[in-house]
Design a binder for these strands. Structure first.
Lengths: 214, 214
DNA sequence: CAGCGGCTCAGGGTTTTCCCTGGAATCGCC
DNA sequence: GGCGATTCCAGGGAAAACCCTGAGCCGCTG
């Protein structure tokens, strides 16, 4: 079992490498960013690539981009994404295409080292391994219908500008709409967000809060 | 050099333990929560306690509480706090009392394993080791005077209610003030927050954003 | 093709927000 | 004792943010 590890934090990377090595996994390379990960997989063709999501330069989702790239270019290499936090959206878009030879675990939720080893074995064998928390979160989201999802694209655009502190007039200029149109959309959005008129509430702020809370 | 490691994520904890052990550090115990950490330090009196901040049950600052407890009860044990993110406030309150035998590092910013070893040695020797990023952040905060700090307590109270989506009238009822008084305070807050009138901006939302961004 | 939802506007109206000016009471501080 | 900062409030007015109804246009779907 040959594995490449990509994580920008040497402390984590080295630690995980030791754990794997101790348990008979051959850690053939360690890298600290996405480009290096791609190069390493290209050259070494490991059985599994263990990839952290946040890596330089932007520390957002380069690990995930790299994971997709690896899956499409080197389908024989399984990809196991290790994330710091629960970001179900990322996990979903990773798995939804083809749920094979791929996995998504959270570092903090790997209860025992054996779980990581097990996951590595299973993705290498072609299985799809996803942390329970991801599944729970996605199901929970289905249940509580997020009112923001109810908005039409235009309404969402307008609420987004509103959430940046724009006035109706500012929104008009930004989207080239008449003031009346903006008002109409805002009214529609309020209704869909369940914000009814109440003398003690400021609907605009409530809408912004609902939008930002996602 | 005898060390106790407290971190609720076995993956991290075991990894760090391996790294230290490999480099001649005697890891005498590993625990997964704050109470166990205190018990372990009490029984084993290690040279250094390596403590993660977030641990069960609340996953907020129990590691930090444990760290303070260790420092006061077992002053011969140095404490090195390992945090996931940059939380300068925590770091500051840890160090400000007595900057000795204590340290604060960020997992992701430990560039090389040697840095961790070095930090362990130094806190054990009585030094105070703080990640550069913490220092930078605290200094930067001094420089940019947070405009929210400029508000009077009454103004801050009112902006806080505003940030919950209350209307002026709602604020009146909550604080038993006349509408005119609320207006006056809001105007004062706008001025101090640097929110000038602009036709394309909604000042109320901008104030809420400024307040929430802290 | 009829119907429906989304997008675009208008007229005409009310309420809320926010402006300026100005006054008065309290409190701490030099 | 005066002076500044804070807090409380008022009148008067402009502008913005809302409401309702109604309407034309588009694209999709049954």
């Amino acid at each position: 079992m040959r594995v490449v590890i990509a994580d920008d934090a040497p402390l984590i990377r080295e630690g995980v490498a030791r754990l794997l090595a101790e348990n008979g996994v051959d850690v053939v390379d360690q890298v600290g960013d996405a480009d290096a990960a791609l190069a390493s997989v290209r050259d070494l063709r490991p059985d599994v690539a263990l990839v952290d999501i946040r890596m330089p330069p932007t520390h957002t989702d380069e690990g995930l981009r790299a994971a997709r790239e690896i899956r499409s270019r080197y389908p024989d290499t399984a990809v196991l994404v290790l994330s710091q936090h629960l970001e179900s959206d990322y996990a979903l878009q990773l798995v939804e295409e083809k749920p094979e030879r791929v996995g998504y675990l959270m570092k903090e939720r790997v209860g025992r080292v054996e779980q990581l080893l097990d996951a590595v074995q299973r993705v290498a064998a072609g299985e799809c391994v996803v942390d329970r928390a991801v599944v729970d979160e996605l199901l929970a989201r289905r249940r509580r219908v997020d009112p923001v999802e109810e908005l039409t694209s235009r309404e969402r655009e307008i609420i987004a500008l509103m959430a940046e502190g724009r006035s109706n007039q500012g929104i008009c200029r930004a989207l080239w709409l008449s003031p009346k149109t903006v008002e109409t959309h805002i009214r529609g959005a309020f209704a869909k967000l369940g914000i009814k008129e109440a003398p003690e509430d400021n609907r605009r702020v409530l809408a912004v809060l609902a939008y930002l809370r996602r």
